[in-house]
Simulated assay, not measured.
Amino acid sequence: MTSQVEHTDVGAYALGILEEPDRTAFAAHLATCPSCTAELQELSGVAGALAGLAPLDDDRDDAGTVDRGPAEVVSLLRRRKAADRRSRRGTFVIGAAAAVTLVAGGIAAGTAISDKSGSGSVPVGHSAAHGPAEEAYRAGTPFTGTGAPGVTGGLVLETKGWGTHAALELRGVKGPLECELVAVSPAGERRVVTGWAVPERGYGVPGSPEPLYVHGGVAWEPAGIDRFEVRTSGGDTLLTVMV
């Protein structure tokens, strides 16, 4: 990755196993890549989830069991990654992390979710044919937002044990802009869900027809949210989604 930053290295970055030049380059890449930033949020707890798992192959002790802490597992993955440098970077790391979390049996692969109206939900077990934000959005039934002139979009909500996961689709915006998705309670309290930058070419506009997909989370449950707003750093509201 020293010659170019690869999006697939987000898994290696989350586990802390990139070498220093690669780690520095990827940290700079995160500042300009909403997709990798969002995926990093999802993977940030992986190292902690690896505690106490069985080894990946021949590392069992005489009793046939191993109790590994996160640091030991990360060390094992680092050695494996070094031996597999010719393969596509990051793919091995993400695959290994997925395999051991399935062995653990304590991490859900899908979540049955609901919301106040029966819409805006994501079914269990959706595939990963797209990026995580787009996949979550495509799998659900979105709440449709009301936008500023030319702006359209929608939001899919997913109830989590820690609060609410939100996946946003946004069209009709041109940059450069800095934006935030904000959750608003019935009492008017606001919490930032996620933020991103819109490049000059924009999203969902002539010459750049693809929409923007971002996702993030808020500690409130759906019942405690009145609406979501997409706002610019200058205070303009681009989209309002009532939930």
Rank of each mutant, 00 (worst) to 15 (best):
V198Y: 00
D67V: 15
R190G: 00
T159K: 15
A12P: 02
L76Y: 06
C179F: 00
R86K: 12
D226P: 05
C36T: 00
V184G: 02
T37Q: 10
R89T: 14
G48W: 00
K116N: 13
S35D: 09
I17N: 04
R191Q: 15
A47Y: 04
R85I: 12
S185V: 03
G188T: 04
A112V: 13
G150Y: 02
T91I: 05
I107K: 05
F228W: 11
A109L: 15
E169R: 14
Y213N: 01
R231V: 15
F92H: 12
H7T: 13
G52N: 08
R60T: 14
F92N: 01
G105E: 03
G153H: 07
S127M: 07
V241F: 02
R68S: 14
G118H: 06
E134T: 04
L102P: 00
P211K: 05
T240F: 01
A183W: 01
A187H: 09
R89Y: 04
G11W: 07
L155H: 02
R80G: 05
E134P: 05
E135V: 02
H130A: 13
A148K: 13
E200V: 11
G64F: 03
A104E: 13
E42K: 08
A166I: 02
G16P: 09
G16R: 03
A219G: 14
I17Q: 11
T24K: 13
S87H: 09
A128F: 15
A108L: 09
G48L: 08
I94T: 14
R171P: 07
T8I: 13
T144V: 12
R231A: 09
V156R: 06
E135G: 15
L15A: 13
T2A: 14
S121C: 07
V93I: 12
D115N: 15
E169C: 03
L170N: 05
G163Y: 06
C33R: 06
H126W: 11
A12Q: 05
W162S: 15
A82Y: 01
A112K: 11
A197T: 08
A98N: 10
G195Q: 11
Y203I: 01
L77W: 09
A96H: 06
T164V: 04
V103E: 15
V205S: 02
E6V: 08
A12W: 00
E229F: 00
L56S: 15
P132K: 03
R60Y: 11
G52P: 13
A12V: 03
A54D: 11
K116G: 14
D9I: 06
L181P: 04
V151Q: 03
V151F: 07
A112T: 10
R171H: 10
A38Q: 05
L76N: 11
G131W: 00
Q4F: 07
G172V: 00
S127D: 13
L181S: 00
